[in-house]
């Protein structure tokens, strides 16, 4: 518990002149799932994308403050962003499998990491598809296009793709927002299994989802962290009035 994965301290973030995060402090603990909740535009996705430096892709952004992964500053000049992203995987809001076969989708990340032998690839692809609870549905059609899968299957394929390269952390940016309730339930179930092996950070709009899948919850409002605590506490006995209003559905 005392050895956090991410330690975020006084983090400020700007898109051009517009500040999106104000002095945010959050600690992400290993093998737990942490949820970021809050209304649209509150900065939760921005914070998530700081954790694997995906925000670097956006022009004219600026970050100040501290994010450390096991004590190592993420924005330190000597940090290799490519290595960082191998350790911190990501699943996006809109499922984005490559227009390749199911096999090649997962093989893509593995090949980049230098796994090239046919047997190794096949083994690791099967293992990650099993972990993503997709193996039984696709094992007979690994060479079919990933785009032919249903939305929920595509998202689980993206999860399989992310975990195949064995990251330490899995970031999930509203992974169920485009899915129906059945597919959502499957992914939520999956998150419970995955956190045995990975540390999970999930951004969600859906408060019930945060309550179901996370151990800790951070509530953001207008770029500020309002409250960060154990999930049950946030949902049953929040310290802050704003949090209470949000989780009980009075605004947001």
């Amino acid at each position: 518990m005392d050895n956090p994965v991410f330690h975020i301290e006084k983090l400020n973030f700007w898109y051009g002149a517009k500040q999106a995060l104000f002095d945010v402090d959050v600690t992400i603990r290993p093998n737990q799932s942490t949820a970021f909740i809050g209304p649209s535009g509150c900065g939760k996705t921005t914070l998530l994308r700081c954790l694997n430096r995906m925000n670097d892709l956006i022009e004219r952004t600026r970050v100040e403050g501290k994010i450390a992964l096991h004590g190592q500053g993420l924005y330190a000049p000597e940090v290799d962003v490519i290595e960082l992203r191998k350790r911190v995987g990501m699943v996006f809001q809109k499922s984005n499998p490559f227009p390749k076969s199911i096999f090649d989708n997962i093989a893509y990340g593995l090949r980049i990491q230098g796994v090239n032998s046919k047997n190794d690839l096949a083994d690791r692809i099967e293992a990650s598809l099993r972990k993503a609870a997709l193996w039984d549905e696709v094992k007979d059609r690994l060479n079919d296009s990933a785009m032919a899968l249903s939305g929920g299957q595509q998202q689980r394929l993206c999860i399989a793709r992310a975990i195949a390269v064995e990251p330490e952390v899995l970031l999930m940016d509203e992974p169920c927002s485009a899915l129906d309730p059945v597919a959502t339930a499957k992914i939520e179930e999956l998150i419970q299994d995955l956190k045995k092996e990975f540390t999970i950070v999930i951004v969600t709009h859906n408060m019930q989802q945060a309550a179901r899948v996370s151990d800790h919850t951070a509530f953001f409002y207008l770029g500020k962290l309002v409250e960060f605590d154990v999930t049950t506490k946030i949902f049953t006995n929040p310290a802050n009035k704003q949090t209470e209003d949000y989780v009980t559905g009075r605004f947001g």
Binding site: N52, M54, G89, F92, N96, F98, Q113
Partner: peptide, 15 residues
Amino acid sequence: VPHGFREGSLALGAT
């Protein structure tokens, strides 16, 4: 080419 493909690839640690 959809932006999601690029992000998906970069997030896997591709250069």
